[in-house]
């Protein structure tokens, strides 16, 4: 078999890494997938349902698990790729624990970190009982119960968009793309679970860029009575009843507004992962002003690094949704195969 002797290391076992590994194995390449966690799956492991159709995340997880279940793939877990260097025709990878692996090519798929909500101090995450992140709400969906810290049900929930995105104050000027539609999806789910609960989204712009996103936004208004207030939340505090008090400008009414909510959900954005950033520094891979990996060309070389034999897949290059991540991973495989064939 043509590729059988060739070995590709995939750094990172999230959506991009799993898809890339699966595609390569299918084409007959020998693949080693290095995953830092105990199991492959990445952020998707924490997700209950996916936008825009609210299908169970488990369906996509199942697909990806099947992709990995191939005799050409070996998976190394609880291990991190610390450094990549090119040596002759080989790419040498240093793994945590001090071992080295040799490969013919490497696909970096180190993914993203969720923005650490503690850094927006004014929202009181980690201090006020009922300030949670979108990821924590997703866990509540998985558990089948959306509740306040004291176990009681919320009667009003507020979603705060753009937490850690589009915000110079936390050094993130970029848009994380998926948080708007995630908020709409989660808002609908809250209303479905708790029909008596009022739901508000505090947004700056509604960026419904993908297929059926705008339709989901429309459905949220038409069917689920989600309320939208255009303004960036400036601070949150608690009152004597331990309800959160949100301050915002209702920019469309042109007046400051305050509102009590029982649960405040922070739509935390995507940042370059710490692990990916460390790998980039150690290996001399370029990063952009947004701190994600800089690709060879934004239009036609978006999977290519500036190091021979090293390719990029998924959100280590920029925020993207699952659909785009899978496509991006397949494109990374195409670039890798082209490189290996031409070598």
């Amino acid at each position: 078999m043509k590729g059988a002797s060739k070995h590709v290391i995939v750094a990172g076992g999230g959506v991009a890494g799993m898809e890339a590994a699966g595609s390569l194995a299918e084409m007959g390449y020998r693949v080693t997938l290095i995953e830092k966690g105990q199991d492959p799956g990445g952020h998707l492991l924490q997700w209950h349902a996916l936008f825009p159709d609210r299908r169970p995340a488990e369906e996509v997880r199942g697909y990806l698990r099947k992709r990995l279940n191939h005799e050409n793939i070996s998976v190394i877990t609880s291990t991190v790729v610390e450094k990549i260097r090119h040596h002759g025709h080989d790419v040498i990878v240093n793994l945590s624990g001090g071992t080295e692996e040799r490969a013919d090519a490497v696909i970096v798929a180190t993914g993203f970190d969720l923005f650490d909500a503690h850094r927006k101090e004014e929202y009181g995450y980690g201090i006020y009982d009922n300030v949670i992140t979108a990821a924590e709400l997703e866990e509540m969906f998985s558990m089948g119960k959306v509740a306040k810290a004291d176990g009681t049900l919320p009667s009003r929930v507020g979603f705060v968009h753009c937490v850690g995105s589009r915000d110079e104050k936390v050094s993130n000027n970029h848009c994380s793309k998926v948080c708007c539609v995630t908020a709409v999806k989660q808002a609908i789910e809250v209303r479905k679970m708790l029909p008596a609960c009022e739901v508000f989204c505090f947004y700056m712009d509604m960026r419904m860029y993908g297929p059926y996103y705008e339709e989901l936004y429309r459905e949220s208004q038409e069917v689920h009575n989600i309320n939208y207030i255009r303004g960036k939340v400036s601070e949150a505090s608690v009152n004597i009843s331990n309800r959160l008090v949100i301050k915002v400008e209702d920019t469309l009414a042109g007046r400051p507004l305050k509102m009590e909510v029982d649960l405040m959900v922070l739509m935390v954005g995507m940042e370059m992962s710490k692990q990916g950033a460390g790998l980039a520094v150690a290996s001399g891979l370029e990063t952009g002003v947004n701190r994600f990996l800089e690709t060879g060309d934004h239009h036609y070389g978006n999977n290519v690094s500036r190091m021979k034999g090293v390719f990029y897949a998924g959100t280590c290059t920029a925020p993207m949704n699952i659909t785009d991540t899978i496509s991006h991973a397949r494109a990374a495989v195409t670039e890798t195969v082209r490189y290996l064939n031409g070598r």
Binding site: H118, E121, G124, Y125, G126, I127, Y128, D129, V238, N242
Partner: peptide, 10 residues
């Protein structure tokens, strides 16, 4: 209110 959250900031 989680006191440890404030201590973290302090």
């Amino acid at each position: 209110m989680k006191p440890e959250g404030k201590k973290r900031i302090w």
